[in-house]
Design a protein around this nucleic acid. Structure first.
Length: 1029
RNA sequence: GCGGAUGUGGCGUAAUUGGUAGCCGCGCUAGACUUAGGAUCUAGUGUCGAAAGACGUGGGGGUUCGAGUCCCUUCAUCCGCACCA
């Protein structure tokens, strides 16, 4: 039979599903391997060809690992809570659960068609109460733990309470936002509310007033990684800063461990780099400047360059700094108030776009540089960020470019304290140089000075060496419906968590998915939704990353009702060995998941503290958009006509823009006394008579053309002009074609196109090799039904561009159509063949034919039409060599995730076996196993045709035998002065000396040696010979 | 501005350790078979050149017997961060 992908693929997909071929169980006798794809959000648009790229790669890898004898866990599920379903619910009233269900069904159908080896019995969904029960459970654990900096791990709150009872919070080195100390007595005297407030400063999940990213359009707060340049990542709505009471996770406690762990995982360098920057660890010193008029109070600053402290000429504090009131003097008050108010009211977006403008106001007070004892003015300026460090800086214009710009702008002094630059011109920020103008620190190198000055500050009690992080705590509540409810209720304003046996707290039904009239989140609409019928639940829900931060554990034991996952399961599967997904999650999911994992590790739930040992990021598949160019008729007519008459093409000189008084005409010829004007027919009919009179007055002849005629009947128009130039009598107005105005499209390479036409995205399905199918285009939209086209030759050529794949750009390639046409095996292999998996590349369907041809050719090794032609003859050396070369290459390349080169190897082997007319089982049986992880359907079919009754996925990957690859002779390229001149076949076991001798004696060498003696002969055995003359 | 990555035929790419640059595929050219081909097969295809040969991995320089690969410099594109003190 001929290769028929449709029937083969359907047949085996059914077989795999019915016989649970891809189910796995923990099996202590086999080594485990865990391959995971990033959790997909099932969007309504379904999959496009870019989505499966990573899934195909991970599927190939897990199938390969299975063939290699591993027990492979390769699960799939859905990150099913999220904004799009909820936005859709708001618009239509449809419950997000229904939309989600529908989308999942569609996703599943598409995934199944691609022949993935997922163990679907382990599927999880974040929106399933059986799943989010454990998300809530983890939240409760976070609430009930704090972070001990000395132990560098999470510790139960009960331990903290014991300490408070005994000695207050003295001597506790915790990750905390608590600034004040209190004694055991003070603790015992606190009210319940006060105690709760204190504990909130310690808990890993805590409720606090924080500056949050508020997105009014989405009606919710967002985490830092969900905001980019002042806009929400999802939806692109403006975001503003707002102070709100919100749940947060104290991820900052884990800063150091998150940083340190990066050294132990095999991830792409750029992702590690992004995470390093996001955590933003910087070493420096916290220094105190006494406020001149208020010697009791100090202004604390953080600096990484304490060595430049003698260069401080002023200080700057952020507009939200708590000391603003204290610092501002009477005279400056109105100006400072005005500035602060303006600065704080600005949206994040304005602030960013206005970053170039330097602004600030003097507060009126001074602070004393503890090293020099000299007072410097304190300014308030918005280039200082309230959220970083202490919200105040010592300004060193000589050695910090921002301070420099500020000093220049306001005429503040600049002092050079590190030698090496010209500080009047620009800040010298390099750490190369020695201290000057720095008292007894003069002459020290920068690193020495940093150390010496920090030590001096510590000894004298006005400073301390510190480490500062850029990472902020993660805001954990969203004012949204479609997310996990917090297992929290409020009693007398104090938040309490539910007990484990009260979980899950189910998401209640609401009448509308909108905030209440009072602005409370949608959950406030739920009727009679109270703890024990009495206490209000938390009305926010958890963010997207809640459900996706530890989902990979649940796959290990997905149906466990009593535990998150069993000890046995986690001790067997441990962590993800190989993770495939997008790089866009670098500062979101990939950092949160590491944090959750570390926390669960601290609780002793998991044996490993990093979740994903090895990761690769698949590149994006970009769309290739096509454009048609719609003509702006007036512009085109003018352009076309001008191109024909400009210069002296008609025999007389024409010029543009005849101007006389208030009249303006398009073209005229002084010489021939002709004016030409182009307009729409309707206007011309009205204006013909006045124009003619006007022209007569000025002693000109006027010719009017309608736009359409100029564009579509150019030659006739030109003829008329030429007649007029020749002095013949031509009508002022003469309509060649009457038409109702219809859209006109011009082919891409018609000259002047850029001038008179604008591009419109056209559906790529109407275009083949950039040639537009005009009939289909006419049917595409009613308004194009009567469109006219200006062609190149016979064809309309479209423009093209590489862009993101998106519905609105009409460049989405849907995998279903391709699977239908070529089959999943072809699509899988083609996507891998496109290039290295990490690289982004535009989708181009052109090459898919080549892969399809390959599979058909591969099929013909086994079948001649209806007949299986595999024979039992013994394979010869050449055939074995082809096979083992292929096995070796594929084996090595899969291991290094170079899947594109594997496909080439298969093609080479297939081509060579065809040349050898080889149809031997001894060759073809191992070959079909080798190919099976790439093209599971066709290989399963051939495997069964070869007489096997057990699925090929249970087979063993063939071992390659070095013996077959050995060559008896090697073809040496012989170079002279590094330039290859000829090739020489020599015995493989020839020694270096022999090779040298034989090469020099070779006939062809004489020609190149040209009688000279070689200066040097380099022989690399088995590789190359180079002769230097 | 800072940090990272990438630049190889008309196109997607290959060259794993410094050792024949262009494997494999697309496209293109010519031919065979065919009623037909969007099937299949054969040959060719980096550039210049009739050929011999010369040139050729973004540009310039260097190290080396030998550089796509290493070093310096420069340009371009993409990504990330962006007042982070």
């Amino acid at each position: 039979m001929e290769y028929n992908h449709n029937s083969i693929e359907a047949k085996w997909q059914k077989y795999w599903a019915e016989n649970l071929i891809y189910s796995v169980i923990e099996d202590e006798t086999r080594e485990k391997y865990y391959v995971l794809d990033m959790f997909p959000y099932p969007s309504g648009a379904g999959l496009h060809v870019g989505h499966p790229l990573g899934y195909i790669a991970s599927d190939i890898y897990s199938r390969y690992k299975k063939l290699k004898g591993y027990n492979v866990l390769h699960p799939m599920g859905y990150d099913a809570f999220g904004l799009p379903a909820e936005q859709y619910a708001i618009e239509t009233g449809q419950h997000p659960a229904i939309t989600t269900e529908k989308n999942i069904a569609r996703y599943r159908e598409q995934l199944d068609k691609l022949g993935f080896s997922f163990d679907w019995s382990r599927e999880v969904r974040t929106s399933d109460a059986k799943y989010y029960k454990w998300t809530q459970w983890t939240f409760i654990r976070l609430f009930e733990h704090w972070f001990d900096n000395d132990l560098q791990k999470a510790v139960p709150i009960s331990v903290l309470l014991e300490k408070f009872e005994k000695e207050g919070n003295y001597g506790i080195n915790a990750a905390t936002s608590m600034e004040e100390d209190f004694s055991a007595i003070a603790w015992k005297e606190m009210t319940e509310v006060e105690k709760s407030d204190v504990l909130m400063h310690y808990r890993l999940a805590y409720l606090a007033d924080t500056m949050v990213n508020w997105c009014p359009a989405l009606g919710t707060v967002l985490a830092n990684d969900e905001v980019s340049e002042g806009f929400s990542v999802r939806g692109g709505h403006p975001v503003e800063k707002k102070n709100m009471k919100q749940w947060s996770l104290r991820i900052t406690a884990y800063s150091d461990r998150l940083l340190e762990g990066l050294d132990r995982i095999d991830w792409p360098e750029n992702i590690k780099e992004i995470q390093k920057n996001w955590i933003g660890k910087s070493r420096g010193a916290m220094l105190k400047f006494v406020i001149a008029h208020e010697p009791e109070k100090e202004l604390e600053i953080f600096t990484t360059r304490p060595d430049t402290i003698y260069g401080v000429t002023f200080m700057s504090v952020a507009p939200e700094h708590p000391y603003i009131g204290l610092l501002t003097t009477e005279e400056q008050k109105s100006e400072v108030d005005k500035y602060v108010k303006h600065a704080l009211n600005r949206s994040e977006r304005d602030r960013i776009s206005d970053a170039k403008n330097i602004s600030g106001v003097f507060t009126g007070s001074y602070a004393i540089n503890p090293f020099r004892g000299k007072a410097v003015p304190v300014w308030v300026a918005d280039y200082v960020l309230g959220g970083y460090g202490t919200g105040a800086v010592m300004a060193v214009p000589g050695h910090d470019s921002r301070d420099h710009a500020f000093a220049k702008h306001f005429g503040l002094p600049i002092i050079e304290v590190i030698k090496g630059g010209n500080v009047e011109e620009e800040a010298y920020e390099s750490k190369e140089g020695v201290c000057i103008n720095s008292g007894h620190f003069d002459g020290l190198l920068v690193p020495e000075a940093i150390e010496a000055m920090t030590k001096y500050a510590e000894e004298n009690g006005f400073g301390v060496s510190t480490i500062n992080y850029r990472l902020r705590d993660a805001i954990f509540s969203r004012q949204r419906y479609w997310g996990e409810p917090f297992p929290v209720y409020y009693k007398n304003g104090i938040p309490f968590v539910l007990s484990d046996d009260e979980l899950p707290l189910n998401l209640p039904e609401v009448d509308k998915y909108l905030p209440t009239e009072d602005g409370d989140p949608p959950l406030a609409r739920a009727r009679d939704w109270k703890y024990k019928g009495e206490f209000e639940y938390e009305h926010s829900t958890m963010p997207g990353f809640a459900g996706s931060s530890a989902y990979y554990f649940r796959y290990m034991d997905p149906h466990n009702e009593n535990e998150y996952f069993s000890k046995d399961a986690v001790n067997y599967w441990k962590s993800v060995d190989f993770y495939v997904g997008g790089a866009e999650h670098a500062t979101g999911h990939l950092i949160y998941a590491r944090f959750w994992n570390k926390f669960l590790f601290d609780l002793g739930l998991t044996p490993e503290d990093e979740p994903f040992k090895k990761m690769i990021n698949q590149g994006m598949i970009q769309g290739r958009s096509n454009f048609v160019y719609r003509v702006k008729p007036e512009n085109m007519a003018e352009y076309v006509l001008w191109e024909m008459i400009r210069g002296k093409q008609t025999g007389v000189e024409f010029k543009q823009n005849f101007k006389e008084g208030h009249r303006r005409f398009d073209f005229y010829s002084e010489e021939a006394k002709i004016i030409i004007e182009i307009k729409r027919q309707k206007s011309l009919e009205k204006l013909a008579i006045p124009y003619e009179e006007y022209a007569k007055e000025h002693n000109y002849k006027i010719i009017l053309f309608n736009i359409v005629d100029v564009i579509l009947h150019t030659d006739k128009v030109l003829k008329r002009i030429k007649k007029a130039v020749a002095g013949e009598n031509v009508p002022v107005l003469d309509e060649i074609e009457t038409w109702e105005e219809v859209p006109i499209f011009v082919s891409a390479n018609i000259s002047g196109r850029e001038e008179f036409a604008y591009p419109i995205h056209v559906d790529i399905n109407l275009v083949d090799s950039d040639i537009l199918n005009i009939d289909s285009f006419r049917n595409w939209r009613p308004e194009y039904e009567n469109a006219r086209f200006i062609l190149e030759g016979e064809k309309y050529v479209c423009g093209h561009e590489v862009e993101k794949m998106s519905k609105s750009k009409y460049n989405v390639q849907n995998p279903d159509d391709l699977v239908e046409k070529y089959g999943a095996d072809t699509l899988r292999m083609y996507e891998m063949f496109l290039g290295p998996i990490e690289q982004s590349k535009p989708w181009d369907t052109k090459g898919i034919e080549g892969v399809y041809r390959f599979l058909k050719k591969f099929w013909r090794l086994y079948y001649d039409h209806e007949k299986l032609i595999v024979n039992e003859d013994q394979a010869n050396e050449a055939e074995l060599k082809v096979l083992h070369k292929c096995i070796k290459k594929v084996d090595e390349d899969i291991e290094r995730f170079s899947l594109n080169t594997c496909i080439s190897s298969f093609m080479i082997a297939t081509n060579e076996l065809h040349d050898l007319k080889c149809h031997k089982r001894e060759i073809l049986e191992p070959l079909v196993i080798t190919l099976s992880s790439f093209a599971p359907h066709i290989t399963e079919e051939l495997w069964s045709a070869l007489g096997h009754e057990v699925s090929i996925s249970k087979a063993e990957f063939p071992k390659y035998n070095e013996e077959y690859l050995k060559e008896s002779s090697i073809i040496y390229p012989v170079s002279f002065n590094g330039k290859r001149r000829f090739e020489l076949s020599l015995p493989a076991d020839a020694s270096k000396e022999d090779v040298e001798k034989m090469v020099l004696e070779a006939e062809e060498s004489a020609k190149w040696l040209d009688g000279k003696t070689p200066k040097k002969v380099i022989v690399v055995p088995g590789k190359i010979v180079n002769i230097v003359i």
